[in-house]
Nucleic acid binder design. Structure first.
Lengths: 116, 116
DNA sequence: TGTAGATATTTACATGTGTCTATGTCTCTT
DNA sequence: AAGAGACATAGACACATGTAAATATCTACA
C-alpha cells in the first residue's frame, strides 16, 4: 500500500480551478484523469458504462458499440481503469466495468465548482 | 461564419455523461476540450487565468509561473484559445487571456451534472 | 481433458504532441 | 525612423499515443 495518491484521490483534494491556482502536483494528477477522458472513444465508453443500468456494463456490450477491434476497446478500458474512473470486476467469463460516480463528481467540482 | 459548432458550443448541448450515452459527435467535440485540459501545464495555465482577478491575466504574468520557454507557453495558450476555453485580447503591447467561465461550467455539467 | 468463447497482452507502426531554438510581427518610445 | 520589448509563428526532434494482428489467459461446459 503506497503512500502516493492515485490520480483520482488527488482530484478530490482541491479547490476549484477558478478559486485559486492549482498546485503543480494537483495539476499533474488531475491532468492524468482529464487526459484519459480526452479521447472520443474513451469518453463514449465512460458514458456508455456510466449511463448503463446499475452504472456498470459488460465488455461484450461495449465492443459492439464501436467499429474498432476488441484489443483496442480493451486498451481504452484499461486506461480508464488505471486512472481510477472505472472499476473492474470479473464474473465468470465476463468482465464488468463500473463507473465511479464520485470521481466524476469530484472532477466536475474541480472544473466548474463554486465551493472550496 | 461557419455552420459548424465549435467544441465549446458542442459541450453545452448535452445531457450529462451518466444520463445517457454520449453521441459520437458530442463525444468528438467534448473530447477536444477535455484533451486541452489534459496537460498539466495547460491545466495550471487555465487555473492561473481563471483564478486571477477579473478572470483574466497577461501573458507576461503567466510566463514567469513556469520554467518553460516563452514559445512553449504561447503554444499552450493557443491550444486553450482554439478550443474556446480562453478569450484573447491585445491591449497595447500586452496580450490578455480571459477564462470563459460558462464553458467550464458546461463542461462540469457534462461530466458530473445531474440535470438534463 | 479438451474445445470454444471472452477478454487481456504483446508487438509493431503511423501519427500526434510537447518542447526548444530561431525568427517574425507588432507596438511603444526616443 | 530606429531600437527595444512582448508575443506569435515556423521548423525540428524526441517521445507518447491510438490502432490492429497475432497470441495468450482464463472460464465454462461437453
Amino acid at each position: 500500500m503506497s503512500l502516493e495518491l492515485t490520480p483520482v484521490q488527488a482530484v478530490a483534494c482541491c479547490s476549484p480551478l477558478s478559486r485559486e491556482p492549482l498546485s503543480e502536483e494537483a495539476a499533474e494528477q488531475a491532468s492524468v484523469v482529464l487526459k484519459a477522458l480526452g479521447d472520443p472513444v474513451r469518453l463514449r465508453l465512460m458514458s456508455l458504462v456510466a449511463s448503463h443500468e446499475g452504472g456498470e456494463a459488460c465488455v461484450c456490450d461495449l465492443n459492439d458499440a464501436f467499429e474498432l477491434s476488441q484489443p483496442t476497446i480493451s486498451h481504452h478500458l484499461k486506461v480508464l481503469h488505471e486512472v481510477g474512473l472505472l472499476d473492474r470486476e470479473k464474473r465468470g467469463v465476463w468482465v464488468y466495468y463500473r463507473a465511479r460516480a464520485e470521481v466524476l463528481q469530484n472532477l466536475a467540482s474541480l472544473i466548474g465548482g463554486q465551493a472550496a
